[in-house]
């Protein structure tokens, strides 16, 4: 017993001060890819090396629509190797309230050799869905924030994940990220949960289980889709065995891209969902 106390004292406090301080990442970390849109000469090489179609382009009538979709991105950095106009930043906080807000598109006029001659429509992300002006909706939102303002119970559902996301989610319960600091804790039943944290492309075998889990939750309830697979189906997409994105099965409130998202990104997504993400000075 004495040794247990001695070891704890020796280890000291290892908890990160994130989000009050920036995410602790190393120089090689691959975060959100950044495209130099005006200088982008050709979207095709990057689209060809992208394993998930996160970078995609379609040509029509001498114009090309090029898209970067963070929901599909697995942050492998292959595009940045293939194209000098793309670089991988260290930014891991990519969570958004809508799928559309994760995708940025630009339109280029094409030259004779198929490269970009000029930028016709500057890059624009999809907009967040308009907040419902419905009075009931507003009231529900206020109630959600009031109810969930302090503590938050999360039920995690593996709807077909490779368990990479689970490795990082488990990290949230550890001493370094310690989600309990925010009153966030994981529960064993959807009946006790305010939020469903769903990972994986939803497999056809888990579809019914996921629906039932969602239906078993008391309202107001939130759903957070985690990882490239949860946000978009990821590298698995939609096939004979999977339905793809979580929002193909149940409504999703916040999308957390990443493959897997690191614990910083998960905290950012969870706190964004309950409107508790602090605006950092500077």
């Amino acid at each position: 017993m004495f040794n247990v106390l001695r070891q704890s004292q020796k280890a000291g406090v290892v908890t990160t001060s994130y989000p009050a301080t920036p995410a602790e990442v190393s120089p090689r970390t691959r975060g959100r890819p950044q495209i130099d849109w005006p200088a982008w000469k050709d979207a095709r090489p990057a689209a060809a090396v992208c394993p998930t179609g996160a970078i995609a382009c379609t040509d029509a009538g001498g114009r090309r629509t090029a898209t970067l979709d963070l929901a599909r991105c697995i942050f492998c950095g292959l595009c940045a190797e293939a194209d000098p106009a793309i670089r991988m930043t260290h930014v891991c906080e990519c969570a958004a309230r809508s799928r559309a807000a994760l995708a940025t598109s630009a339109i280029y006029a094409l030259g004779p050799d198929g490269t970009h001659a000029s930028l016709v429509a500057p890059p624009a992300a999809g907009t967040e869905p308009p907040v419902s002006l419905d009075a009931i909706g507003r009231e529900l939102k206020a109630r959600t924030e009031k109810l969930l303002g302090r503590s938050l119970s999360i039920r995690e559902v593996d709807a077909g994940s490779c368990n990479g996301c689970e490795v990082e989610i488990v990290g949230l319960t550890g001493p370094v990220y310690d989600a309990e600091r925010f009153g966030v804790h994981f529960v064993a039943s959807p009946r006790h949960a305010d939020m469903l944290l769903v990972t994986g492309p939803v497999t056809r075998n888990m579809e019914l289980a996921l629906r039932k889990t969602y239906d078993a939750m008391p309202g107001p309830r939130l759903v957070v889709a985690v990882g490239a697979c949860g946000c978009s189906g990821g590298i698995f997409g939609v096939n004979y065995a999977t339905r793809g994105a979580v929002d193909a099965v149940i409504p999703v409130d916040v999308y957390v891209p990443g493959c897997p998202p690191n614990p910083h990104a998960l905290l950012h997504g969870i706190l964004t969902a309950v409107g508790r993400w602090p605006s950092r000075a500077g």
Binding site: S26, R28, T29, I74, F75, G77, M88, G174, V176, P260
Partner: peptide, 23 residues
Amino acid sequence: GMRLKERALRLNELLTGSRLLRG
């Protein structure tokens, strides 16, 4: 255990850019 594991994951990230050695 989780404290030690976290240091290992951070080393992975330092070496390969991914905590789970992806990419």
